[in-house]
Design a protein around this nucleic acid. Structure first.
Lengths: 127, 127
DNA sequence: CGGTATACTAACGAAAATGTGCGTACTTCC
DNA sequence: GGAAGTACGCACATTTTCGTTAGTATACCG
């Protein structure tokens, strides 16, 4: 399929993204937000800021390494703000930025819908 | 942070999911929907049903293997309905189920928001 | 007749994601 | 005194994910 020329011209300079295009810059951002731990970290942070270990406990099953990796990605996209106090033992806070809250506002309905409908989703599979 | 006992009792039997818990059955479903190609397939199918090759062309960069695997996952969760006509050459249609449309309705705002704000997201990174 | 399209699957190897254990420099609690 | 908690980075091993190639039976187009 050759790209639609109209869509092409609208999107070529990425004034707005078109995720369905392979080289759209939205792709990596989408992947960070929807990664295995990304969604969960965002959801947890949406309620309130967390310290690192606190967040690890909130997000069941995540390892130190994965959590810090995930947070680094989210931070580089501007969704999370990391605030470190230079003390020993270390004290670091993670909070959503305004941009992060906007993103979370789109993530939460999805997660909530799945949680609410998990019964209906799983039921046919059991049958 | 020990689990909140109230939330515990509400969620133990998974009448409703709590994705933050490691063993919540919502996890796999969430992963199927938010997988690299899962989101994109859902978004593409939300506009209209597609045949296999048509969908592959719509979702830039996906391979046959990944697409068919993704569709299989989405089908087993009840989001996608596969309709095959037993003819040669094969003719197969993929469409969202009602459940799939509900899920897509939560996926699309997320994707649209990223597409709309990709400029604002990327700008600080360039600086 | 040769090329192209269809909807996949099995098999293989490469690449990416993920977990584990260790180390840190100190504090607080038992 | 000893154990545990803190916020990671690093090296290593394993797991999973992903893409590529080959193959199928047939039809349509030129």
């Amino acid at each position: 399929m050759t790209p639609d020329p109209l869509a092409q011209s609208l999107h070529t300079r990425w004034q707005r993204g078109n995720v369905l295009a392979a080289d759209c810059p939205s792709r990596p951002v989408l992947q960070h937000l929807t990664s295995r731990w990304g969604v969960l970290a965002m959801v947890a942070l949406a309620t309130r800021p967390h310290r690192f270990a606190e967040l690890r406990r909130a997000v069941g099953g995540v390892s130190d390494r994965m959590l810090s990796q995930t947070l680094k990605d989210l931070e580089s996209d501007g969704f999370v703000r990391r605030t470190a106090q230079d003390v020993v033992p270390p004290h670091v806070d993670y909070a959503l930025t305004p941009l992060g809250h906007e993103a979370a506002a789109r993530l939460i309905p999805l997660v909530a819908w799945i949680e609410d409908n998990i019964g209906a989703i799983l039921a046919p599979q059991a049958a």
